[in-house]
Design a protein around this nucleic acid. Structure first.
Lengths: 205, 205, 205, 205
DNA sequence: CACTAAACGAGACGGTACGTCGAGTCTTGGA
DNA sequence: TCCAAGACTCGACGTACCGTCTCGTTTAGTG
């Protein structure tokens, strides 16, 4: 029995193959339009026009506007998750948080905020966001915390969700509520404070 | 010095006065429709129909759907801010946080989440939300923290914004990201943890 | 004794009397707005605003926009009907027709055209137009034709309606269809032709 | 030599072609609603609903209500222009006029009157009416008059516009002013009188 | 090398909601 | 009682965007 190319047995390999070029043009157009107009004010028609791609083609591959923007975001932030592991788990946590602050301070920050905004009224987007964006990052976080537990820094029975809430909550709040700026000071000062806060929760005897 | 009726001197008292009845019917209809459909799926036409009020009248007083829902939310949560002051500032903080958790766990939680969602693409809503909803609550919080400072619990030079982020961030994150439930356990356990975390930041050395 | 005001015995003379000033301001405003915008594009609100009069007051005295414009037209063209009677009935007819051509060539022409236009979809305006504007003019015309009959110019059994159609039809057609201009040549040449045409119908055999 | 399909070479045959079915359904609905309600009281929404066609589709092809009704009128009266040519030009003129009287006495009469009414406040409709409806009919009329000139009945230098005004003016006046009925007697008696009137103008001296 | 089947561009289509406008009525307080 | 101001209802307007559809036209791989 021959080695099988993934998915090749299910999908019929006949007909014209999907144009990778289209995909890129659409994602690029989505990116550009998001920057110019924001998620709400950009239309799928506009994406189609800017990308020079037919609307039908867009709807063949993405279910809606947010899904396009989400995919554009994912392709441009794939690398950002991986932070080299150091011998000091708390340093790793700080580095991870700081990196996310940096990301949110840039143009991607508004994209993330918009997607979370849309997710409030669209369960599919919410689910996709949690699965594709949040999931890997929380998993990486969890691993770092586990290393902290292994190093004896934290109690082994802590609530991981709560731990991550403590570490990231203030950051998301600033991103979404915008009551105070995500400025350089925040990027510098906040991460160690977050980790200190976690220590109170996770290590208090 | 005579007490002056507010605004009565400025606004010209001519013409038919605004119908208070209309206002209430619209807010009630918005409330009902939000519960039935959610912000995104409810239409201004529907509000008009349910309220038995003309669309033109709605647009005379509110710029858009979200503004109506926001006002409905405000009128129904005005009392919630005020928590009696106790001799123990940290008890007050815990009580305030727990009360907000309770609010967010109820039907108003989805309203708040939707408004913040809309605020991501509509700066006016964002501003209104910060001014009208967030403002008073953060002010009350700040006052409680000041009492903590006065009591010697916290350093006097702490960053108030950051303090409030630490206290509320995790709560908002759960409300908006929904990666973990806003359940009874959270309502019970989280508030004291938050205050403990604040203490680490505000009292360290 | 004193001259009695007509109708003063029937109407209860209580309350504030109707302001004649209002009436004039409204008619003047209607006139101005008609010239600026035309019947369709002018709004009753605009009349009220320009006249400095409340909309309620307008609707108290006129049923609708066209009625205002009609009254404005009537007050400004009352004198135009009466042409001095000469010993030559056909001269009188020519003079009457020419006077109407002159009227239609001026700004009142568009007013008349607009009213007839509105009359196509509003029976009340149609009726009012026929009664108040057309009636007197057709009666005067009929009288002139009667003098022609008395002078032996026309058969006594002619159809008066048809006679007037022959005399005025082409004029109204130009006013309303605008396929050819109501110019000086028409004002000069048409009236005698019309009367000649009438003679063919009314005197043949 | 092959017959070429008109416009097929110019128009790019790309994209989904216009649905002829839609066009017919819209025109039929317009016709029905006009009969039921008249031009002023029928709405584009109603046409869309009755036709089972989206409002956007209607507005893609017609600029407004009147344009739809006009097109419906045109499609249903295309054949009416052509009257067979006889050896007697004046007989042809009489036949043409009588045919128009008959048309105006039927339901199309109100359609024509409404369109002319609307044309008083909408220059585009006025122009369309003159171009599409009036134009061909006046051209046919002009041809018949030319035959009269060729036959020596009329002077060759007569004003064609005026000639047609004399022939049709009274008819349009009755249609639009409705001071007298467009009855059987008018259909019987008027056409020959009109032609006699023309003769006075066109053949005198 | 023709054939086939899916991808694609163009753009029409049904649908839903939008926010606006004007007509005409109603409700105040003041003259 | 009349009036000015202006809030209100009603109904229609024309627009925008969504997601689907129907064409005719590529563009691989297959037979």
């Amino acid at each position: 029995m021959a080695a099988v190319q993934p998915e090749s047995t299910l999908l019929p390999r006949v007909g014209r193959p999907r144009s990778e070029d289209c995909r890129h043009k659409v994602l690029a157009a989505a990116d550009e339009l998001f920057a110019r107009e924001g998620l709400a004010r950009m239309s799928v028609d506009a994406i189609a026009q800017v990308a020079g791609v037919s609307k039908a083609t867009i709807y063949r591959w993405w279910p809606n506007k947010s899904a396009i923007v989400m995919e554009a975001l994912l392709t441009s932030t794939e690398a950002e998750v991986h932070v080299p592991i150091s011998p000091f788990p708390e340093e790793d946590l700080i580095a991870k948080i700081r990196r996310t602050v940096a990301l949110f301070r840039g143009p991607r920050g508004r994209v993330v905020a918009s997607l979370i905004g849309q997710a409030q009224s669209d369960p599919e987007i919410a689910e996709a966001y949690r699965q594709q964006l949040l999931g890997p990052r929380r998993a990486a976080m969890r691993a770092a915390i586990e290393r902290g537990i292994a190093a004896g820094l934290y109690r082994p029975d802590i609530d991981q969700d709560l731990a991550i809430d403590i570490l990231y909550g203030p950051l998301y709040q600033r991103l979404l509520l915008r009551h105070a700026p995500l400025d350089e000071a925040f990027e510098r000062d906040y991460p160690p404070i977050a980790v200190a806060a976690l220590r109170v929760y996770a290590a208090r005897k």
